[in-house]
Every structure is written in C-alpha cells, then in structure tokens.
Design a protein around this nucleic acid. Structure first.
Length: 488
RNA sequence: UCCGGAGUGGCUCAAUGGCAGAGCGGGCGGCUGUUAACCGCUAGGUUGUAGGUUCGAGUCCUACCUCCGGAGCCA
C-alpha cells in the first residue's frame, strides 16, 4: 500500500499541473483561493448545495466539492462533481470557456477538489444524486489536483477497499449507507426522547463483566485492570430506579474471535430499560420503536435506498404487530423444516435439540417464514444471561425475547424481564460463580425498592445492514473494528 | 480454535507442467451529450514467503504468512 503512494508521489503529472495552474486566476496561491466563500472573487453567485440545485434552475451558482468522475469528449467534457449533499453533472464546452480553464479541467484527476460556477438547467439526461439538473460551467477554480486515486469506478476486492476505508467512504454506496445510519441513530434518540425515555449514559470503562459469558477487552487502569463495556445494562437498571424509563446509547466492545458477516468487536448499541415493564410490554414497545425507525428511513432515504438497489417490499410491511412465537414453537418449526428438507446438509444445519441456542442457519430459516420481524420468547434459562427472570411455573425457560429481522438477517434485539427478587438474584450470582463483591452495588438495587422491570439492546449495525440490504455488517460503521481489522 | 476457499501489473481477473496475458486505472492522441462512454498508441511483473520434485513450475509437493467465507459466541 505504501509503495503505491510513493509511486504516485513521483508522478511527473503533478508538477505539470501546477505549472499550468500558475496561469489561472487561482495563481497557485492557496490563500487567494475562493475558499470557504467566494467573496472577493469575480463571481458573486450564491454557493449552493447539489441537493438544492432544483431550486436554482436558470440561475448562476457556485458549487464546491470534489471531482467524482469525468468523461472527456474532446471539445466537450462532463464532470461529475460531489459536494457531500449529492452528485451533479457539470458540463464544460470548449468554446464557452477560456482555453486555460478548459485545459485544466481536462486534466483533472479523480477526487481533485474544485469550485465551479455555472448556470443550472434541468436536463433529463443529467445523471447524479438527486440528478435531473446539471451545471453549464462558466468558471472553475482548482483547489488541489489529487494524486492518482486508488478507488476507481470499477470492481475492487474487500481487503483493498477496507485498507482504503478512509477514501472508500466517499463512494456513493458508502455515502448512502452512512447517511441511513445517521438517520437510524437520530430516529432512535428522537423516538425514545419523545416517548418518555431519558438518556442516561453508562460507563465504557468498567471494573467487571456485565455478563460473564463473553470475552472482554482488558485495559490497564493505573494500577488496576479494567474492561471495556460489553453492555450498559446493569447500570441501566440502577438508572431506571431513578428515572423510570431510561436508555443508554454508545459503543460496545466484545473481544470475541467471531469471524462472520454479523460481528464487529466495536459496535453501537442502544439499550432501553423500563420499570414496571412485563415481557409483553417490552414486545409492544419494541414493535412500535422498530416500526418508527423503518418508517423514518423509508420516508427520508428513497434516494439512498435506490443507490443501494434495495428492494423495499419487505420494509414497507414493517408495522406492528409483529408475530410472536415461543422458543418451543421455534424449535418445533425448525425440526419440521429439517424433516421436510431433502438435502442432508441442510437438514443437519436446521435440526435443533431443545435447550440449545439458535445458530445463524436457524435464525435465517426462521425469519424466512415471516414477512416482517418476528419475536421469539421464553428461551431456555441455561443459554441466557444470569439476570433473566425465570417463567413462574417453568424455571427451565426465562422471560426473554429476541427480535429477528426478516430476509435472513436474524437477531437485531435481545431483551428480557430482569430478576427483581433479592434471594433469586443472589442465588443466580452464586450459581454462575462470579465475584459477588463486584456486583455488590447491583445487588443493592434489589434491596431498596426492587420492582419488576425489563429492557433490551438493539444493535445499530445489524439494523442498518438489514435496512440497506447489505450482505455484511462491515460497511454499516465508518471504521469497522473486526478480528483482523483495525486500520485505518 | 475448527472447517472450507483464495493470494499473478495500481485494481479485478485469465493462463493443459512448455513464450506471463486481458479489461479497467495511468500516460499520449482523437471525438459537442457522456451515463462504469468509445477508438488508436503506450508504459507497467521477484506470480504471498521459504524449501522441494522436474529438462522445464504461476501450475505439482511440504511448511509458513496473509486475507475471505462459515461454525462456535453474540447485538
């Protein structure tokens, strides 16, 4: 990778361009460039966003951005310019421009930064996002000629793109995904805020495991060891006793050696926790919450979903109520599916013994039986976290519920009623053999006005992957952290 | 950790054990409506690393490295 860059640096072309630039108004001097506002330049046109171009039809405007692609037709060239808000086509005719301007445009490399001025006109042939309008260039200034850009509009491999993630985020697909991610996060916050939930932050540096099962990242905390949080849940339970309905929202860390399309070592999770909530209350809330997120993305991001070529048929169907099946029923459905399958490999993958947790083939098969997200509740107590409330007359199962997203996406939320009985939580902690001292504060919560309560966690990246129809979670976060990835 | 797959030009990939190639990208030239434009010319290689078999290895064998997919675990 580094040899690539040094090779580019040697390119004679760069020097060549700067020689030419000296003859333009830009004069090779960055201080004199019309940046960030065109004040002082000959043009006094408004600087506009590409997303707003339709509002300026017939007017002369200035757009500042980067060259996404260029097609040279000789005496005519098409420039696709992006400015963060969208991509628009700009057209330069040789006979309408000074020779030097036309020539410098002609030699611009991909991702060169520039400021263009021209007249906005509607044209059905104009590509872009949103497209349909183009700019007839009357003036142009170059900020920087980009070195040979590694990401071309052709196909690339995963490793190459991941090594260039800092540049890949400029590509239209990544631009679309990360804009949708921002809306998902924004809607999560707004919906919770508007429905009586209070944001109460929980610590990232923690003295002990939140759940004993998964592996934690260990850090040095002065003379002690500490761990990066794998959940804010236990602190949420303390906060819930103060505010009734709370949520925490932040990065979560799991040092599991997972190597799949559904795992990151650093991911974002929102965790609501509610006092006096039953498992049924929890499912009612979740289906409203998820529907709101999906609805908002559909409402705001038609263009982005179009860029991603996302078939939104299934997303349009996402509205409460969602189907609810018990773990018992899910196991029965899977074994029935297995029995009906001819392929012995598939059969082995689907068959499941009561008491085991679902693997991803199971989740995939289950979700394919429904046209919207499906709740699976009352999982075996043995496969779930220690704090989950056992079912009254069936302690081998607990008051837990996962929400599985359709189209094979699988688990996006996991939650439960929590044990609120003082003796029972003591027993559970003793039973799994974790250090009671570390949990003394948590046990206090069962001493001072304990109440039934419930909560869940929603994985932001898995949700975004589902909404965008992506095969892998790694593109849903700007800089993914995975088993084999922490650069850039 | 286990199972499977892949490492060849900047990128994506070809190449029966017998002259290492194409497309894209780069460079030069042409073209007034391109949509991943097109046409001509051109530069660009320690075939992941180290051994081995062979007259001859990108190709076969051994070890190692890296990445990808899946399992387990989970959001």
């Amino acid at each position: 990778m580094f040899s690539l860059f040094s090779k580019i640096a040697e390119s004679r072309r760069v020097d060549h361009f700067y020689t030419r630039l000296a003859h333009l108004r830009y004069n090779g001097n960055h201080e004199k460039a019309c940046f960030p506002t065109p004040k002082g330049c000959s043009s006094v046109t408004p600087t506009v966003l590409i997303a707003d171009l339709h509002r300026y039809e017939g007017q002369t405007v200035t757009v500042r951005g980067w060259l996404y692609d260029r097609t040279d037709k000789g005496k005519l060239q098409f420039l696709k310019v992006r400015d963060g808000s969208g991509i628009a086509q700009a057209v330069a005719f040789q006979k309408e421009l000074p020779e030097a301007t036309f020539e410098v445009l002609r030699s611009l490399s991909q991702e060169s930064s520039l400021i263009i001025t021209g007249t906005v006109r509607a044209d059905k042939r104009a590509p872009g996002y949103p497209g349909g309008y183009e700019i007839g260039i009357s003036d142009a200034q170059v900020i920087q000629i980009a070195d040979e850009y590694p990401i071309t509009p052709k196909e690339h491999g995963v490793e190459f793109l991941m090594d260039h993630r800092h540049l890949w985020v400029r590509s239209s697909r990544q631009w679309a995904i990360l804009r949708i991610r921002a809306t998902v996060i924004n809607t999560i916050r707004n919906w919770l805020d508007d429905n009586g939930y209070l944001l109460v932050d929980t610590p990232i540096i923690t003295p002990a495991a939140g759940e004993s099962t998964t592996e934690l990242f260990e850090i040095t905390y002065f003379e002690d060891k500490a761990y990066l949080a794998q959940t804010g849940q236990l602190y949420n339970e303390a906060n819930m006793m103060s505010f009734g309905k709370v949520y925490c929202f932040g990065p979560t860390f799991r040092s599991e050696k997972s190597k799949t399309r559904r795992h990151l070592t650093e991911f974002w999770m929102v965790e609501p926790e509610m006092a006096f909530f039953s498992l049924e209350d929890l499912m009612d809330m979740e289906e409203q919450f998820i529907s709101a997120i999906v609805g908002r993305v559909l409402e705001k991001h038609r263009m982005e979903l179009d860029i991603l070529e996302r078939d939104t048929t299934f997303l349009e169907r996402v509205s409460a109520p969602f189907p609810r099946i018990s773990y018992d029923e899910a196991v029965a459905r899977l074994n029935k599916l297995a029995a009906e399958t001819a392929d012995p490999e598939q059969q082995a993958a689907l068959r499941i013994e009561w008491g085991n947790d679902f693997g991803s083939p199971h989740e995939t098969a289950l979700t394919q039986q429904f046209d919207r997200p499906v709740f699976v509740y009352h999982y075996p107590t043995a496969v779930k976290a220690f704090y989950m409330q056992p079912v009254a007359d069936r302690p081998e199962v607990c008051r837990s519920v996962d929400l599985l997203a359709p189209e094979g996406y699988g688990e996006i939320t996991g939650g439960s009623e929590r044990i609120y009985d003082r003796d029972l939580i003591e027993q559970r902690i003793a039973h799994i053999g974790i250090n009671r001292e570390n949990y003394a504060w948590y046990l206090d919560l069962r001493r001072f006005g304990s109440v039934p309560h419930a909560g869940f966690g929603l994985g932001v990246e898995r949700t975004v992957a589902w909404l965008c129809g992506l095969p892998h979670i790694r593109e849903t976060i700007p800089y993914p952290r995975m088993l084999k990835r922490m650069y850039p």
